[in-house]
Design a protein around this nucleic acid. Structure first.
Lengths: 127, 127
DNA sequence: TCAATATTAATAACGGTTACTGTTATTAAT
DNA sequence: ATTAATAACAGTAACCGTTATTAATATTGA
């Protein structure tokens, strides 16, 4: 499938900036150069890219959804102070989820672990 | 601390109805009898109760936050079809989280596992 | 070239939640 | 009991993130 100019820009922004950007982040990164880009276009294309399986969406407990170009199964830690999101590899989690599936009659399709706390920097700057 | 009539009603509704109600659920359960209850009051008191540690809030990826009177550490499965939320005990998850904390310089304050899929009923009614 | 289709920019609308405002209830001290 | 201070309320407006609408522009295929 052929992509529009805008969709390519949006896709590349997510893939090249591994900071788990929000839709607004993507918009603000592109807007200065692509001055007539619309926020609606960003949202629409991010959704399309998620449906395509090109990127994934991370639902954040408080605040905007974030997007991630890393398609490998992984989870996230979020710093409650600065809001930064960090990738984590959670060895063993799949086993736990499978055990739950085996004992509950629930058909698991996906799962996410979200860890909250303080990142290295914010821990230090608190003394 | 002494609670207002409304706050007691709201607290009891969450504690007695273990269906992980949304703010709107709580409102709709109380409104028929307490006809001049305000939705804003429900939100405000739910937040207060969460701050007090009387109930917990469950952030749902799509849709409204839900509230839970079960204070024991546990996680949730949500059915993508009917939206029902189920409690799960996740033995071993704490170990995984602790291992991450030990290897990452991140100070963990809390964590949640959310499983998505199909519940027993919805699995059956799909054939 | 032209019509059919897709995508866009701009903006309005939406759903969930929070903030504001004027009023009512509760508390503590006289 | 009366009053003054505080807290909580109902009602409603505002907010924020997101989605839907619309008219215009770009792309595709005959």
């Amino acid at each position: 499938m052929k992509y529009s100019k805008q969709r390519e820009l949006i896709q590349n922004t997510v893939l090249e900036n591994r900071i788990h950007p929000t839709a607004d982040d993507v918009y603000n990164m592109l807007k200065p150069i692509h001055t007539n880009l619309s926020l609606g276009t960003v949202y629409r294309n991010l959704n399309t890219l998620v449906e395509n399986g090109t990127i994934i969406k991370i639902s954040m407990p408080n605040g905007s959804d974030r997007y991630d170009g890393d398609l490998s199964k992984h989870d996230h830690m979020v710093c409650d102070q600065c809001g930064k999101v960090f990738d984590i590899k959670t060895e063993g989690l799949l086993n736990i989820v499978q055990k739950i599936e085996n004992t509950t009659d629930f058909e698991v399709r996906d799962y996410q672990l979200m860890i909250h706390g303080l990142c290295h920097n914010c821990k230090e700057s608190k003394g």
